[in-house]
Design a protein around this nucleic acid. Structure first.
Lengths: 334, 334
DNA sequence: AACATTAATGTAAGCGCTTTCATTTGGTTT
DNA sequence: AAACCAAATGAAAGCGCTTACATTAATGTT
């Protein structure tokens, strides 16, 4: 592996000059620039990003922490981030946090120890305090899908409450009155916000929210399945169920069918997230769009702008969800 | 940010000693070890992984190139890799190759320029020659889901042919005789291997493979949809269709239903990959399991063993697929 | 007690770059 | 032709570590 020194030697110039032509900026005569470029070429020179980082105190890497590397939401998010960062020549170091406070902290430590210039965090378990503290100390980071007022500038979030509201409102407007709700773990902000939105829509239509029609799942398929079964068990009638994410909706649909009910004729189901899976399902799932890929891009833009001083458009910090109407919901209005 | 120098000063020892206690290995008296540890603690010292890399000529990072960061297969794969590597303190740098030769090469270059100690590559478009060349020059890498005889040791692959064979065989054994095939892009090795397996099973049962019953898709949902429509268009009767992956199976199912056919009663459909989605679908998809997460882990093990001299079990290079029987296939035997 | 061994620690030279500051070069100006 | 100035280039000091080698301290041997 050729070093900058060998290049300088071959080109008959000093290290500094080689460094200059690499980094574009400073003025170098066209003649020497060519000499150097040729030397690099013949030596097949590749600058060591590590040496460069050490000398310049900038690693050109950003760390990403997501709950799981698999899972449609995270995939889309990472995809958005990578695309954006890669074209800027930055690289992406990833770690998983597993929705567990210890593991998340661990991941953050890991990324920091790796000298990332900035972090993009999708954390759920770690406390607000911890993050506020983290922000006041050294480290630069941006939070996705979480809103903490004290560090609002570091947050890119979805208006989850409005999403929950939209989902339930759509049902109400189509004549449903008895609506069950399958939630995610309510200690997770997004889950509780979505539920709040649901209640809001209900209230707006003068319906008293029946706690017996709420079932708390785990954001996963079996969770949805179990919750649906539990809901059916109550014998309280309901014509529709809104699920706090698409995976649980899939589980719920399955449970309903196992009990001999047809979707959407016997029961309507509404999802949340609009993952790819939602259109694959049968019937195609009505859901609420969570533009997570765009949010990932936005997070990357924020970093490019705030950490690397790149010229980027202003970033928007709160994204709005949108209803996606498909086949899993039936209208009760004749 | 404290440096090793400050630690050494506080502890009243030399740089070298601090370095020694950090790296465990060499003998240091218990007393000084404690002094140093305490000093690190009070200074909240975090070694710079960059300086360390430069000095030791080892970046402790491995690059991963996948076609897309989203997509269930890649998610599972990365998940397996990260888990394994993270516990070993290595970090994971990711990039996307987009199934395009130029973009894949670009990604590889990118990762190499980042001083990764090794690469894990899931590439499809780049040529065998390029990879063989890459192996003979400097760089250490392992290939997932691809088998190249000349560099077999660098390959971890699925026996795709056997997978295709199993899928079709299952159908045949259940009385199906007229079986259509929706393939992935046949220039992709895995796609053509799977199809070969299909033909093999057919031949074994004395059935002549009808080319008109082959339709080449793009491994994506709409591809499956379109192919199914095309197949139906031919008016050639068939009782089952095997799809080269689960996404296309979803699309095919949808197309069939759009044409008024019931799955599996009017037509059986078989998938491939056994992604999470397969069990969410309705009816639950019969498919062939592709243990990609295990393969990711295995790739990581290989790297730990061969690049970092860690003590790891032997790696297996060829994985075997398994049939997963679910509800989307019906038996024609009385 | 004198010496040989071995363990513990220190010294200092890099690793491959960036960057500040000094020096050289070549073109203008008078 | 002397003086000047900006542009181009070079010299050298780090960046924060690792590590080969040298030195010192501790222990054992006779």
């Amino acid at each position: 592996m050729a070093t900058i020194y060998q290049v300088s030697e071959l080109a008959g110039v000093s290290l500094a000059t080689v460094s200059r032509v690499m980094n574009g900026g400073t003025r170098v005569s066209e003649k020497t620039r060519e000499k150097v470029n040729k030397a690099m070429e013949t030596l097949n020179y590749r600058p060591s990003s590590i040496a460069r980082s050490l000398a310049s105190n900038c690693s050109n890497s950003v760390g990403i922490l997501v709950s799981e590397l698999h899972g449609p939401i995270y995939g889309a998010m990472m995809s958005g981030i990578e695309k954006q960062l890669r074209t800027a020549g930055k690289h992406v170091i990833i770690a998983a946090g597993h929705s567990d406070a210890a593991s998340e902290k661990d991941g953050i430590e890991f990324l920091i120890a790796r000298n990332c210039d900035a972090l993009i965090l999708h954390v759920e378990a770690v406390s607000d305090e911890y993050l506020i503290e983290l922000a006041t100390t050294q480290h630069k980071f941006i939070l996705i899908n979480r809103y903490i007022p004290q560090i609002a500038d570091n947050c890119i979030s979805l208006n989850n409450r409005r999403g929950g509201y939209l989902a339930t409102k759509a049902l109400l407007e189509n004549g449903h009155r008895d609506i069950a709700y399958i939630s995610g773990p309510l200690w997770k902000m997004d889950a509780s916000d979505r539920y709040l939105g649901h209640q809001e829509a209900l209230a707006e239509h003068g319906i008293i929210c029946n706690d017996a029609l709420l079932s708390e799942g785990n954001f996963q398929e079996e969770g949805g399945n179990e919750c649906m079964l539990a809901l059916l068990e109550t014998k309280i009638p309901f014509s529709a169920v809104v699920c706090a994410n698409d995976e649980m909706a899939a589980g719920a649909m399955q449970a309903a069918r196992d009990k001999g009910m047809a979707v959407p004729n016997d029961i309507s189901v509404m999802g949340f997230d609009n993952v790819l899976l939602a259109q694959y399902m049968y019937p195609k799932l009505s859901t609420v769009n969570y533009p997570v890929q765009d949010m990932g891009k936005m997070a990357a833009s924020w970093i490019l702008k705030n950490i690397y001083q790149a010229n980027q458009p202003d970033v928007s910090h709160v994204f709005e969800p949108e209803l996606v109407w498909r086949d899993s919901v039936i209208s009760l209005k004749r």
